[in-house]
Design a protein around this nucleic acid. Structure first.
Length: 927
RNA sequence: GCGGAGAUGCCGGAGUGGUCAAACGGAUCACGUUUAGGCCGUGAUGGCUUAGUGCCUACGAAGGUUCGAAUCCUUCUCUCCGCACCA
């Protein structure tokens, strides 16, 4: 049944994993004589479902890189840790009555066991676990440092609240506006005092430094959008005698403001609500179920009148103020001026509540004249992407991309080109005469009249704007109308002028606004780092003194009703550190993103009891040279970690400030591994593949190789066990080959191939094209198989390259060849460029071509004569004879093959084919 | 809604202007090996054609640029992913 030499991977893999651990092969120390390299994967959240295939993929990618750099003589730091605080552990506590600590510890144990089974070359000695007091103590320490330096503050913010649980819910715990545990209970929004970190202090630097990063472009774009810098104007509207600021990027539309909308989650909303409207507003707030962005989009724009009126600073008109569900509370000031004619959201809202719509911007109609004779051809070109409608003696072109119409007109059609305002007022005129190769600009009335007469007009509109039947807002720039002194200006100019006018009245100013908000780190949960603050009846908020850190999370708590920390009296009731009076402890814990924002600094010095990390050690290892993880962390984690690094830099935590601008120099995003059905792996779909089961079946070397073979590592791909079986077969073949191959001298052909392969594979690995590297390794292997004998050195080179992908079998074969050291620490093979012989490559190709010719002829003979030919004769140019080996050819063709030089007098050539031989192309005779 | 990625032969996937009927793997078929099957080896797998050739049709769809397109441009269709209390 079983093939005799079947790979006994279970024994081999366990053996080498033990050896590596025993001999501390992957443990590293700072060594200033060696160049360092820091490879890091995003550390996992240890969930009870264990390591999934996505993890295995992620870590294998990193491990290959770490092994590769190690073999290239870098001092490689490659650690692992666990992001061990978080909601799932707490949910498990509530539902399964298992303590989060136990849950987490069990999960971690199974993670570590599985990671070791994958043969990952971590320095386990540097493990970091965020839920241990030794770690989170430093969270608290950094929090206090931030507090000291004004980077932390408290502010009211809306949270999801379930009455039945008497607790705050995470967005994840809100399902369709209802509590995850009480599907009959509507989630309410409650305003609570929350802790914020001033990430916005660094908004500009975070944005500015993005171009420095060697990250995938899409991640960089995502970060740019997340930070979302926009230039606009802050305008003060007076409401009930008080000035309320709003931010807008469209001050040019201020004459079109017909109402104001304040976010339903705005902390000061109630100040605006009149006695009469209170009931309505309260009902409305209750109706809004969650703060989740996604849900907000699904709901219709809704709102309710607050009873108050604002005064438009330029028109003195009184305009109603509404509370609405579509205004984000923490962007800008949480209030907007609404211009229904020129903003789609405002438009929808105005239609719904029958608020007047006032149009203040009119679109530019652009007019081109095209010579009559050229018209048909022009139409033909334009019709490909636009619609042409004839109306009022004009041909209107409706296109998404007007500039393209102009480009076509300019490039191909001779005539005039001018832009006019739809009411006939000329904005800018351009006369374009291609023939004379000149461009003129005209702008007098007379010239315009003249221009209008010229030729046939074609008007182009970006969209139709019949105001009475307006179905959507006109959101593009244009020319101002109904705007008093600002009429006829175009939007961009008007923005400037209107802002200046507001500045003059001291009711507005230019402002740069970021979408990036301050980071809300308070969590009303148990399983996180306690925020080290105490509230004293006399002294107010008092930071916990550093000497009292860590504020430990109490173990004995009650889950399920309220915040477990709040109901724990021993934890809450404390003495004030200042006056020793009665005080209560902060019960909020920190967002786990806080933990993951600096964990990469703790690896360098994970056992330090006196400091979060030793400056010198961090100086040696940082920054991270290669960071690896999924795109789901594209914004949050990566921005917070960048912020943290910059903040710590400014607080003097690093020796070399310049070097510590950015924590992650290079970032690699692995693709998602889906199930074999193409869907995300998930329990409910039943398409989850457990890495450990696969390792038990085929071994981790095969699994690692397969994971890297599915597709390019940065692409999404589907699981397929057949690929794994293919890898497994390859492993077996390698083992068999090493048993029987004779060691001797490599042929020049072999030497050329191996050097070329080393060169290419090194490049492929550097660029994470592991799939291609494996293909090249397979191709090299095929050639080794064909050779009679191969030099020991070349076999070792092959093994070394294999070892980064399949470390166990490589280590085993390495030792079987008589090596006493570890291949994992061996030096990466060097390329000898002089051995790479392109002529040999050419010969190789010629041989392939000849083989396929022979096969082709054999097939035709069989078809025609109905029988198999038996003998194949080749006639080659004399100096090429050595590249056609009778033995190899016979084996491949499964026929007797004779090779003659064309000038061989004794050759067998009954049909005189030898004359047809050409260089690189032998003549063939078959019988 | 905003933002991002992608569509290649029976399947998975390489491939970014000619050397492409398109790497590599899988699957299937044929032959060899074998008592047989499996494993293993060799070859084939768009169509027609041919003693080692030539032609046609092909890379989501439709157009375009070019001497030349899987590759560049335009429009369309479809799929997937991220979006601040999940980590």
């Amino acid at each position: 049944m079983v093939k005799e030499s079947k790979l006994d991977f279970l024994v081999i893999e366990k053996k080498w994993q033990k050896e590596w651990e025993k001999k501390k092969v992957f443990e590293v120390k700072e060594n200033t004589k060696k160049k360092k390299y820091y490879v890091l994967e995003m550390f996992p959240y240890p969930s009870s479902s264990g390591l999934h295939m996505g993890h295995a993929l992620n870590y294998t990618i990193g491990d290959i890189y770490a092994r590769f750099m190690r073999m290239n003589k870098f001092n490689v730091l490659y650690p692992m840790g666990y992001d061990a605080f978080g909601l799932p552990a707490e949910n498990a506590a509530i539902k399964a009555k298992e303590h989060p600590k136990k849950y987490t510890e069990n999960s971690m144990k199974s993670f570590i066991m599985q990671q070791k089974a994958l043969g990952l070359s971590y320095d386990w000695n540097r493990k970091v676990v965020t839920c241990e007091p030794e770690y989170y103590k430093w969270n608290q320490y950094f929090f206090l440092k931030f507090l000291e330096n004004g980077l932390v503050y408290r502010k009211k913010a809306g949270v999801n609240f379930c009455r039945k649980c008497n607790t705050v819910l995470a967005n994840e715990q809100v399902h369709n506006g209802k509590c995850w545990r009480h599907s009959d209970t509507e989630v309410e929004i409650k305003q609570l005092e929350q802790w914020f970190i001033k990430t916005t202090n660094y908004a500009d630097e975070l944005l500015r430094d993005i171009p420095k990063l060697q990250w995938p472009e899409r991640i960089k774009t995502m970060q740019e959008n997340w930070i979302g810098k926009s230039y606009g104007t802050e305008i003060l509207f007076e409401i009930n005698g008080k000035k309320w600021p709003i931010f807008t990027t469209r001050p040019d539309t201020i004459f079109g403001v017909t109402f104001m909308v304040v976010s339903a989650q705005h902390p000061r909303l109630m100040e605006l609500v009149t006695e009469k409207q209170k009931k309505d507003v309260n009902n409305f707030i209750k109706k809004i179920k969650s703060t989740k962005q996604e849900d907000m989009d699904k709901f219709d724009k809704e709102g309710v009148f607050t009873g108050s009126y604002a005064v438009n600073p330029l028109t003195d008109e009184k305009i109603p103020v509404y509370a609405g569900n579509f205004v984000v509370a923490d962007y800008g000031s949480g209030m907007v001026m609404a211009v229904p004619a020129h903003d789609q959201r405002d438009f929808d809202f105005a239609k719904k509540y029958k608020i007047p719509i006032k149009r203040v911007i009119e679109e530019d109609t652009k007019v081109i004249t095209i010579e009559e004779s050229l018209k048909p051809e022009f139409y033909k070109e334009v019709e490909k992407f636009a619609k042409i409608i004839n109306k009022d003696g004009l041909s209107y072109i409706y296109a998404n991309n007007i500039d393209k119409v102009f480009d076509i007109a300019k490039d191909k059609f001779i005539g005039d080109l001018w832009y006019i305002h739809s009411e006939g007022k000329v904005k800018k005129i351009m006369f374009h005469a291609k023939k004379e190769n000149k461009i003129f600009y005209w702008n007098t009335e007379r010239e315009i009249e003249e221009a209008k007469k010229y030729g046939r007009k074609i008007g182009i509109k970006e969209e139709q704007l019949d105001f009475n039947e307006l179905r959507e807002a006109y959101t593009a720039n244009g020319i101002l109308i109904n705007s008093k002194g600002f009429n006829d200006l175009d939007s961009e100019e008007a923005k400037e002028h209107i802002t200046k006018a507001l500045e003059f009245k001291k009711l507005g100013s230019k402002k740069v606004q970021y979408k990036l908000r301050d980071w809300l780190i308070s969590r009303q949960r148990y399983w996180g780092t306690p925020i080290p603050v105490i509230y004293c009846e006399k002294c107010g908020m008092v930071p916990v003194p550093e000497s009292q850190l860590p504020v430990k999370l109490p173990e004995k708590v009650k889950f399920g009703k309220g915040n477990p920390l709040e109901t724990n009296k021993a934890f809450v009731n404390v003495k004030c550190p200042k006056c020793k009076g009665k005080a209560r402890r902060e019960t909020d814990t920190m967002d786990t993103f806080f933990d993951s924002s600096w964990y990469f600094l703790r690896y360098e010095d994970n056992k330090n009891k006196k400091q979060a990390f030793d400056k010198k050690k961090v100086d040696y290892w940082m920054p991270i040279d290669q960071y690896i993880g999924g795109a789901e962390h594209a914004v949050m984690h990566l921005i917070y970690a960048r912020f943290f690094t910059k903040a710590l830099r400014d607080l003097g935590f690093f020796i070399n400030k310049d070097k510590m601008d950015e924590p992650f120099m290079k970032l690699f995003n692995q693709g998602m591994l889906h199930g074999n059905d193409g869907n995300k792996m998930s329990k409910s779909l039943g398409n989850v593949i457990n890495p450990i089961e696969m390792i038990d079946k085929y071994g981790s070397d095969s699994l690692r190789l397969a994971l890297m073979s599915f597709a390019s590592s940065d692409k999404d791909t589907n699981w397929d066990e057949k690929v794994l079986i293919g890898s497994y077969k390859f492993m077996n073949k390698i083992q068999d080959l090493f048993k029987k191959i004779s060691k001797g001298k490599s042929s020049p052909r072999m030497e050329s191939k191996i050097n070329k392969t080393v060169k290419e594979i090194s490049e492929e690995i550097k660029d994470f094209r592991y799939n291609i590297a494996i293909i090249k390794l397979r191709s090299l292997f095929e050639m080794i198989e064909q050779e009679q004998e191969v030099a020991k050195k070349d076999l070792e080179s092959f093994l070394k390259m294999l070892s980064v992908f399949a470390p166990h079998i490589s280590e085993e074969l390495w030792h079987k060849m008589g090596n006493k050291d570890f291949i994992s620490l061996a030096e990466w093979p060097k390329v000898d460029e002089t051995k790479i012989d392109l002529k040999l490559e050419q010969q190789e190709e010629n041989l392939e071509k000849t083989v396929s010719d022979i096969v082709n002829i054999l097939r035709i003979i069989k078809e025609k004569q109905g029988k198999d030919a038996e003998k194949v004769y080749l006639y080659v140019i004399p100096n090429e004879k050595s590249s056609y080996n009778e033995g190899i050819l016979s084996k491949r063709l499964n026929k007797e093959v004779k090779v003659f030089a064309v000038n061989d007098k004794n050759k067998y050539d009954p049909e005189n084919k030898a004359g047809k031989a050409k260089p690189g192309r032998p003549a063939i005779y078959i019988e």
